[in-house]
Design a protein around this nucleic acid. Structure first.
Lengths: 341, 341
DNA sequence: TTGTAAGCGTTATCAG
DNA sequence: CTGATAACGCTTACAA
């Protein structure tokens, strides 16, 4: 009635526990014939390994570091809290995680941090930082030291990172574009705002957005990106100006952080009620804006999944286990007022 | 460096392992003074129980049954395969799960099945079945026998089930309505098709859909639901007829199973290319239809989550543990061609 | 190439 | 009331 154990299959195959273990974990030093004997017993009894017990016996300790952007951005904040949540739950069993916050705008500080964590021995690192040559070098040094490296949210494809955990940002941009095109009815001008085009995710989103607009909505014209560079006043000034000047404006696409600022700027404008607004990331601000009909749709990624996925991937990397790609592929969520979680 | 164990806290408190265990698990038979001594040691060392080891020693076995619709429906099929996947993974540790397939159209067979599984002692049951008085009675009998009961996908709120795992179907209908209203541009007629209005999920979706249409898109009129009752020919005939007759038709909302049949019927119609089509559940059929631009949007729920959630909830129910509602709340996914997972 | 025996951190069953 | 001690299912030296 109860599930078969290694003992059962040892008995069934007529071998010892150790041999069963060797076969199950594909360790060397077992005769071909014995291997098949064990595998047959496994198949016959329908044995499934008890991960709990295995991890217990293995006594493995994983030491990970998460490097996340410092600063007031709500998305980064939600990432940090998701990390805390994961840490308190089972997913982080046998795992110690240290969070390091870096000023996203200061490449030097980032590199210094990366070299700092390099000092003490650690097994893996997950990072969400902008792409610079110095960062790529720092990653290379971590890899040389045998540390598993995953990028988070925004990829660094030209670095030696092992894996990227995050959504396909071009696809996210395309989804935003598709909704925008349909919502505005296929014509007019779209304002695109972002905090900075230095981070790869923004660039990719813009690319995907433009692709869909050009192909499926040729009568819509997308204006050049406006970068806020963490300067609320600058953002407010430009948005106000564009709304006043471009009479054909029908929508605003906010590609990255700085939604709070954008919303603030929009509120001051009477015409803004008729604009279709699409933004990224579900935060307290965008959630409220959806409810208040100030934003029409949000393209989001589940930060809980993001963090758990990063932890799982780092572990697999450490153990040289295959990564279950299907499970780690993050979904691009489309959130309307009606399906707010 | 590594996490403190019961041994460490026994030493720290100057008591034995058994006493520590008694305190940790709030078992009786320990002097008040000893309790505080242990608790102080726990606090001092920052002890956290290792769930893996605890479960191992506890030797708990959960015996669950999943009652799922039989038949060719692709959604039910994907549910069954998600169950298989979960069974092979960690989530189902210390759990034996039996799947029972019932003909969804035969209330008698369903009740017979429910009584059948009742016979052997089991800890929990998850079911996706239509609502009938007999089913409600069968659930009551299961509850009397001390079995944990959760409903899946379609709720039975008037039964004695312990918990519902699935999306809020009215909200899903509202999301569909919101997209439909915007995609068709706010005017015209909408055809609504479903397999049967006997299942509660369909009714709730229709309700939500109508609510949004009436409130936000008053110029759109929604036609009465057409029920296919698993009869492809009937579906084809009605759809063809409606398309031919109603010149103002701009969209089709498919509320439940039978997407394959609907798509088949639509393909035969020249006008159908201009119709906005919104359907439920991501299956091979709807996925391909999204790619081929035959469907504009799919409202879905993640079947993997659904199954895992049901297992977690059943376990908590068995152990009289609180259910972490936030985690078990399933998201309503909006899937466009662009964000297909 | 295979087997034996000692753990991993927790719980459970006995005696004291 | 409290304390040894043996499990649980799996891994891993070390021995044969």
């Amino acid at each position: 009635m109860s599930r078969p154990t290694v003992h059962d299959i040892a008995k069934e195959a007529g071998v010892s526990l150790a041999t069963v273990d060797r076969v199950l974990n594909a360790r060397p030093g077992v005769r071909e014939k014995t291997i098949t004997k064990v595998q047959e017993a496994v198949a016959r009894l329908g044995y499934v390994r008890d991960t709990y017990a295995a991890n217990l016996a293995r006594q493995r300790q994983y030491r990970f570091v998460f490097v996340l952007p410092d600063g007031p951005g709500q998305f980064a904040q939600s990432l940090r809290s998701a990390l805390h949540e994961a840490y308190a739950s089972q997913i982080a069993d046998r795992t110690v995680i240290r969070t390091v916050r870096v000023p996203i705008g200061d490449p030097h500080a980032i590199v210094r941090t990366l070299q700092g964590v390099h000092a003490d021995g650690l097994d893996g690192i997950a990072l969400m930082v902008p792409e610079t040559p110095q960062v790529r070098d720092a990653i290379a040094r971590l890899k040389d030291a045998g540390v598993a490296v995953v990028t988070l949210v925004s990829d660094l494809p030209n670095s030696r990172r092992d894996f990227f955990v995050g959504i396909n940002n071009s696809a996210a941009g395309r989804a935003a574009g598709s909704l925008m095109g349909r919502f505005v009815g296929g014509r007019g001008e779209i304002l695109v705002v972002t905090n900075s085009l230095r981070s790869r995710d923004s660039v990719e989103r813009r690319f995907g957005f433009d692709e869909v607009m050009a192909r499926d909505f040729p009568s819509v014209s997308v204006l050049p990106s406006v970068e806020a560079h963490d300067d609320p006043l600058r953002m407010a000034r430009i948005v106000t100006e564009v709304i006043a000047r471009r009479k054909a404006l029908v929508g605003v696409y906010s590609m990255g952080s700085g939604n709070l600022t954008l919303l603030e700027a929009l509120r001051g404008n009477r015409r803004s009620g008729r604009l279709v607004v699409i933004a990224h990331e579900l935060t307290a601000a965008t959630r409220q804006a959806l409810i208040d009909d100030e934003i029409d749709a949000v393209i989001a990624q589940n930060v809980g999944h993001l963090i758990r996925s990063a932890i799982r991937v780092l572990r697999s990397l450490c153990d040289d286990l295959p990564i279950y790609e299907a499970q780690e592929r993050l979904r691009i969520e489309v959130v309307l007022k009606e399906n707010l979680p």
